[in-house]
Design a protein around this nucleic acid. Structure first.
Length: 424
RNA sequence: GGAAAGGUGGCAGAGUGGUUGAAUGCGGCAGUCUCGAAAACUGUUGUCCGGUUUACCGGAUCGGGGGUUCGAAUCCCCCCCUUUCCGCCA
């Protein structure tokens, strides 16, 4: 969440930043509440100081045998007044907190200003050798391929759970598992991350820490009986590993990678890109998370994007990198690159990864700090990126690796994981 | 699910309702000693908020929230969590 002090000192900057992010301008309201808050603090602390001063004298008065009834009555009155003011102070603070928690992060200055995804900027594109956007045979989409080889069964998935819960069978299941293992191994061995296998049900504090709550609450599953949320991404448990902690400067950046299934209700998005794997309630994702120092967090972001790209290069899947404009940035992000992979059947790019720098927005909520050389405490910057999500990746993989005969070649780097080199 | 014990500073661990932000130990930092290091000794060492603005003052803070009281780490109530034992179980 944004820092009140920062808003107080840079009101115009924040107003413009919120406008750029298509967010509600809360600056004036925040300044007003902040003013009230500080005035209540001044009043109540004055009284408390008085109370403390008198209280410290009471033992001596009693020892000296002085009459304390007058002082007690006076202090009782002061106590009541403090209670009243504290109540009003808390109301103001609650209001302020609610507003700030529901206000998105501001974009970094290097992010292009724009209202919608139309203004996103393509940064680069990578195509495997010999790739062509057109095929001289009729390409099947991933659903047809899945059915043809009995590796994906969306109908039965629906029977078991409901729509949007994919069922992988046979070589499809093996391929999915291989993909996950390959990605984890790459990040561990080639990119210097350490592995996390996180809990996938998390409490409310964790969801607040990374910013899914309160703003995206409707998109989250919730297990009422136990007050737990199935994670929408491993970002939540992994980032919360260090909630309420003080990290050592020498340990930064901390780089974690972990696999988890991801659960999303996708409330209100039915009918749009919803067939097959394109929009699902449960999918698998390997997630990279970094805790970085503020002065080099943007270098870490670039490095993270490259880490994700390496996976696609190894798999030889065509992709492009988009720099999201201010209006398309997610709630908590200050800067974000999307990686999209090519789907020949859909004839379009599909988002398979999103790498973001949240600066101290999450760290402030989750209270994750580090101690600097000069002993001062400062919030870390948190980053995360999919490395990558298997569902959309699987669409591109199956479709790009199909042969004119309708077989599916297993990418070279996956073969030692799958134990087979072709499906069909 | 049943029973019991317990949640105090970076960690361990005291704490009688009244100068207790909190003994003590460890750790951290600085200094003395040393060619240097270790050991020893000395000092120092939480965080957040408000005001002032290098150093100063004030407030809050002993799992969370209420209550009793002039005054709560300490007494009462509710909630959360941890540990141990029993039961159940992948």
């Amino acid at each position: 969440m944004l820092d009140v002090k920062f808003i107080r000192e840079n009101p115009e900057l924040v107003k413009q930043g919120l406008l750029n992010k298509n967010a509600k301008d809360i600056v004036d309201e925040v300044l007003e509440l902040d003013e009230q808050r500080r005035s209540f603090i001044a009043k109540t602390e004055d009284l408390k100081a008085k109370k403390n001063q008198v209280s410290s004298q009471i033992p001596q008065m009693k020892k000296a045998g002085q009459d304390t009834t007058g002082v007690f009555a006076e202090m009782k009155r002061v106590g009541d007044e403090i209670a009243l003011l504290d109540g009003q102070l808390r109301d103001v603070e609650d209001k302020l907190d609610n507003i700030l928690r529901s206000t998105p992060n501001l974009a970094h200055s290097s992010v292009p200003v724009g209202a919608t995804a139309e203004q996103n900027v393509e940064v680069r594109q990578w195509l495997p050798e010999g790739f062509s956007f057109t095929n001289d045979f009729k390409v099947l989409d991933h659903i047809e391929l899945g059915k043809k080889h009995s590796i994906l069964d969306f109908e039965r998935g629906t029977k078991i759970s409901g729509s949007g819960f994919p069922l992988y069978m046979g070589k499809g299941a093996t391929l999915e598992r291989s993909l996950i293992n390959f990605m984890l191994d790459s990040h561990l061995n080639d990119h210097g991350y350490s592995e996390i296998f996180p809990p996938v049900l998390v409490n409310r504090e964790s969801m607040k820490g990374t910013g899914q709550i309160p703003k995206m609450e409707e998109d989250m599953y919730f297990i009422e009986k136990d007050g737990l949320y199935p994670v929408p991404t491993a970002e939540v448990p992994i980032t919360n590993i260090h909630r309420d902690e003080i990290l050592a400067e020498k340990d930064l950046p901390i780089k974690y990678v972990g696999y988890s299934p991801c659960f999303r209700r996708e409330a209100g998005s039915y009918g749009k890109d919803s067939k097959g794997f394109l929009r699902v309630h449960q999918f698998n994702k390997v997630e990279m998370v970094k805790f970085a120092k503020p002065d080099n967090s943007y270098d870490e972001l670039e490095a993270m994007v490259k880490d994700a790209e390496d996976i696609l290069k190894a798999l030889k899947i065509p992709y492009r990198i988009l720099l999201l404009c201010t209006g398309d940035l997610s709630f908590s992000a200050a800067k974000c690159y999307d990686i999209e992979t090519w789907s020949p059947a859909e004839n379009k790019w599909l988002e398979a990864s999103s790498c973001s720098n949240f600066e101290n927005f999450q760290a402030r909520r989750a209270n994750i700090r580090y101690r600097k050389e000069d002993k001062k405490l400062e919030f870390v910057h948190t980053l995360n990126g999919s490395g990558l999500a298997t569902s959309r990746l699987m669409v591109s993989l199956l479709e790009n690796y199909q042969t004119p005969e309708g077989k599916i070649i297993v990418p070279k780097v996956l073969q030692k994981y799958t134990g087979f080199d072709v499906i069909g």
